[in-house]
Amino acid sequence: MLGLYFHIPFCIKKCAYCDFVSTGQQSKIAPYMHALQKETELIGGMYNKAVDSVFFGGGTPSLIDEDYIGRIMDTVRRLFKFREDAEVTLEANPCSLTPGKLAAYQKAGINRLSIGLQAAQDQHLKTLGRQHTVAMFDEAFGMAREAGFENINVDAIYALPGQELAEWEETLFHILHKKPEHVSAYALKIEQGTPMARMVADGEITPADEDTDVRMYHMAQAILGNKGYTNYEISNFAIAGYECAHNLKYWNLKDYIGLGVSAHSCIERLRFANTENIDGYIKNMGKGALRYEQSDFIDDTERKVEYIMLKLRLKKGFLLYDYKSRFGEDFLLTHAQELKKACSEGLCVVKDDCVMPTKRGFDLQNRLVSILIENM
C-alpha cells in the first residue's frame, strides 16, 4: 500500500511559530498548482502499489480554489491504483472554509478534515499569528458537520507563552464539546528563524517552562482519555477506528510519496525529497523534470534506529517478531542490556511479545530511544 502527500504551501499569512515551507505570495498559486499537477502525472503509474491514503497538507490547502483539489484527485484516480475506501485528508484553516468549498471537497472524495483551532482564547491565537478567531473555528466546524464530514481532526497547541493551565483545560473542553473523531495536541516548539523566536529574543514573550509543558500534556491525556480518546501516538488521540491512517504510515515505516515543494518520500530503503524553493520547483516541473534535491539509501543500522524511534511513538510499540522479520535478529537477545535498563527506568515494558512505551516513556521518549539504540 502507498500513501500520497501533497504539499500546498500557501497561507494568508505565515504563522509566527511556523517553520514549514510556506508563503503568503498567492500570485504563485496558479503556476504552482500547474506544477503539482504535472508532478502527479509524472509520478502516476511509476509504483505498482495501491494507494490507500492521501493527505493534503501545508500551508493552508483550504486557501486555494477547490477546483485545484478536485483536479489532483481526478488525476490520482486516473493514474494510480486508488482504493475508493482510501482515507483522504485535507488540512483547513477556519477562516478559509466555506459551504461551497466543503461541498466540492465531498465531491472530490475528501473524507477527512483536519481543522486548526490551536487555542480557545483569541489573545493566544493572536500571539501565534493565526488569522482566525475562536468564533470562526466554531462556525467552520459546524459547516463541516453540516456538509456531511464524519471524520474530523482538531489541532491544538499547548505550552504557549503566558498560557495558564486553566486556559489549556478550557481549550480541551471546547474541542470536546464539538465531539471530533480525532484530536492532535502538540507542545509549542519555538523554532529558530521564526517570528516567535525573535519575539523571545527581544523579551516580548517568555516560553513556557518544562514543568508546565508536562503538566499540560498530562492534562490532555487525562481529559481526552476520560472521554474515550485513546492516546495512540505521543501527540495524537482518537476515538477507536479513527486513528489517522496516513500518519500511521510514517510511524509504521510504510511507503509514501510526497509531491510538491519540500515534500519527502520513502520507498522501501530509498528516501528522497523535492527542493524547498518554490520557484525552483515550478521551474523543474515546467521542464517535466523529477529533480530531487536529496536522496539517500537507508542502511541497516539507520533503518533499525528509525524503526525504534518511530514505533515507540505509538502506544502499542513494536512486535518482536516484526523486528526479527525485518532485521533478522532477536531484539531480546541483541539488545538485552539496553532493554533491561529502559525497563528499570520505567520507560517501557515487554508484554504480549511487544516492546511498549509506558506513560513515562511517552514523557521521556528521547531518553527511551537513546537507551535502546546506544550500542547500534
Rank of each mutant, 00 (worst) to 15 (best):
L314W: 10
K283D: 08
K283H: 14
R303S: 11
G288R: 12
R291S: 09
K311R: 15
S295F: 12
K283F: 06
N284G: 01
L290F: 05
Y292F: 15
L312I: 06
K311P: 00
T301L: 04
Q294V: 06
D296G: 05
Y292I: 11
K311F: 05
I308C: 02
Y307F: 15
L290Y: 06
E306H: 11
A289E: 15
I298S: 00
L312H: 08
A289V: 06
R291A: 08
D299H: 07
I308M: 11
E293A: 12
S295Q: 15
D300W: 06
M285G: 04
V305N: 05
M309Q: 07
D299N: 09
R291V: 08
E302M: 05
I308N: 06
R303T: 03
R291E: 10
L310Q: 03
G288E: 12
F297Q: 05
R303D: 11
E293L: 09
K287E: 13
D296H: 10
F297K: 12
K283L: 07
M285V: 08
E306T: 10
K287C: 01
K287S: 03
D300T: 13
D296R: 13
D300C: 05
R291M: 08
K311T: 08
F297M: 12
M285C: 04
R313K: 05
L314H: 04
A289C: 07
L314E: 00
L290V: 04
I298W: 05
L312Y: 06
A289F: 08
Q294F: 07
L310C: 00
F297Y: 11
R291N: 09
A289I: 10
A289L: 14
I308R: 12
L314Y: 06
L310H: 01
L312E: 07
D299K: 09
V305D: 02
M309C: 03
A289N: 12
Y292A: 01
V305T: 13
S295W: 11
M309T: 15
K283A: 09
N284M: 09
L310R: 01
E302Q: 11
E293G: 03
K311Y: 12
R303W: 02
L310G: 00
V305F: 14
G288S: 06
D296K: 09
A289K: 14
R303I: 05
M309W: 08
R291I: 04
I298Q: 03
R291Q: 07
G288Q: 07
G288D: 09
E306G: 11
K283I: 01
R291T: 07
G286Q: 14
D299Y: 07
L310N: 13
K311S: 15
D300Q: 10
D300R: 14
M309D: 03
V305R: 15
A289T: 10
N284H: 06
L312D: 05
I298E: 02
L310W: 07
D300I: 14
D296P: 00
K311G: 07
Y307D: 03
V305C: 04
G286R: 14
N284R: 13
N284F: 03
K311M: 15
R291G: 01
V305P: 00
R313N: 00
S295H: 10
R313E: 02
K311C: 07
Y292S: 01
E306D: 11
D300S: 10
T301D: 11
K287T: 05
M285T: 12
T301E: 14
K283G: 01
